[in-house]
């Protein structure tokens, strides 16, 4: 339990770092560390496949994409953030943390007991047998993403008179 809370705190802290750090590359890396924490939490909750996906795809692939973008846009792209943003954040964060804790505490009693029958079968069976439509939609999402990238990075020669 304590380990779990530590992991969750680590996830939140690295996410906050990802937002507050000035250097974009460092921000992307702390986002990857946050993903790593999330992946470990998934493992401990009994979701190994999701954990592997989180670590390999989100911590790996998405970080690479972020780093690539940072590298491509590096030249004189310093953006001056308002200084107040970083200074005020801890204040807002602590206020929200207190509100969050109070709200969750008041909810604790109100949630009805939930029906939860144990599942049978393996992960592959569940994904294939009961979430087949999601696989179709996944194909659609991937297709949309690929086509979007193709359209946004098309060569200028193919652009006709505009």
């Amino acid at each position: 339990m304590i380990i779990q809370i530590l992991l969750l705190s680590g996830l939140v802290i690295f996410s906050i770092l990802a937002i507050l750090l000035k250097d974009l590359l460092k921000a992307a890396l702390s986002l990857a560390v946050a993903s790593l924490f999330l992946g470990i939490i998934f493992f401990r909750l009994g979701a190994p496949y999701a954990g592997v996906f989180e670590i390999s795809v989100v911590a790996g692939l998405i970080t690479v994409l972020f780093a690539l973008t940072v590298a491509l846009t590096r030249k004189d792209s310093e953006v001056q953030e308002a200084r107040l943003t970083r200074l005020v954040f801890p204040l807002f964060f602590i206020i929200f943390l207190i509100i969050d804790a109070l709200v969750m505490k008041s909810f604790l009693q109100q949630v009805p007991a939930l029906p939860a029958g144990p599942e049978t079968g393996t992960f592959g069976e569940v994904l294939w047998k009961s979430r087949t439509f999601d696989l179709v939609a996944q194909l659609g999402v991937i297709l949309a993403g690929v086509l979007a990238v193709l359209a946004l990075f098309r060569k200028k020669e193919e652009d006709k008179d505009e």
Binding site: E119, T122, D134
Partner: peptide, 28 residues
């Protein structure tokens, strides 16, 4: 918590796929 971790896992994986697609589009 609700003993349906297998279902939740497949949802989370699908969500990660959506995320990758979105990230690619947005970064482009």
């Amino acid at each position: 918590v609700k003993n349906s971790i297998l279902l939740a896992q497949s949802l989370a994986i699908t969500y990660i796929v959506v995320e990758v697609s979105l990230v690619a589009t947005a970064l482009a």
